[in-house]
Design a protein around this nucleic acid. Structure first.
Lengths: 147, 147
DNA sequence: TATTGTTATACTCTATAACTATA
DNA sequence: TATAGTTATAGAGTATAACAATA
């Protein structure tokens, strides 16, 4: 018998466990049940403008048929519209509507307010530490994209 | 026209956006696609032992029928077993199997290794800042439970 | 009668395979 | 022939309503 395969650094395991709990917290912090992909797609359209349907599928990591259905549901709910492409008849351009934008902004606002309420209960020093670590977390997520 | 309703502190919005991206990162960091509820349920059974089916439903925030089905799928896949209750014939106790435990541990190990690889690319100061913030994040998630 | 769990039904969300329309 | 998108089909995962078994 050999030692257990990979023994990860306990400091790392501690951080990973903290992240795991934070993950659960964030999962419950945003209101109005909506799939992660739906919410992410709407945010993308709000942030970066119109996209081809196939671009959305690739960006969100789902198949083209899955995105076809997602866009159909969003369109049925009045959150996006399908528009043709001027020079290529095969292409479907997806555009967010005013209602879609409002939904994105409202969800973000509620989430921010809830997070603010939690942060308000931390000590000033702890709050400062969390706020200060934001750029580092961004760096971490940027690194992950490259990997 | 009045000003936009609630204007949240930009520092807070920044942190919330960082958390949002971290959420996406963590979601993609763990291997073998498995629903958040399935993974969370298995982790709970691994960590805190046997549970009644109804306890699991409440703890995971899903309905009893949804948990009935989830447990059935986990049982079919050999990750949990249903056991009777010694003194109350209505109760179904759910127990994780060795295979279920192995799955939980393997997923955690892979996630830790991937996280370690990312952290290794940070500067020592940034890495220290992230590690140092772990207890504060735990405090934050504890506060959320009370709310 | 109340509690615990399951079954019935319906909808979202995802995948793979087959198809249509345009280039 | 290749590309963009849809339709067909199947399964996971969720809900509410109705039911069965036990307390």
């Amino acid at each position: 018998m050999t030692a257990p395969t990979t023994r990860t650094d306990p400091e790392l395991a501690r951080l990973a466990a903290s992240f795991e709990r934070l993950f659960e917290l964030l999962r419950r912090l945003t209101p109005e049940p909506m799939s992660l992909t739906s919410a992410s797609t709407l945010r993308r359209l709000d942030r970066a403008g119109d996209h081809r349907l196939s671009e959305l599928a690739t960006a969100e990591g789902v198949t083209q048929p899955a995105m076809t259905q997602l866009v159909s549901r969003l369109e049925r709910d009045g959150l996006v519209v399908r528009a043709g492409h001027p020079s290529d008849g095969r292409v479907v351009m997806v555009r967010i509507t005013d209602a879609g934008r409002e939904l994105v902004h409202r969800r973000r606002e509620v989430r921010d307010l809830r997070l603010a309420a939690l942060l308000a209960e931390l000590s000033p020093a702890d709050r400062a530490a969390v706020v200060a670590v934001a750029p580092v977390l961004d760096h971490l997520t940027e690194l992950a994209k490259g990997a």
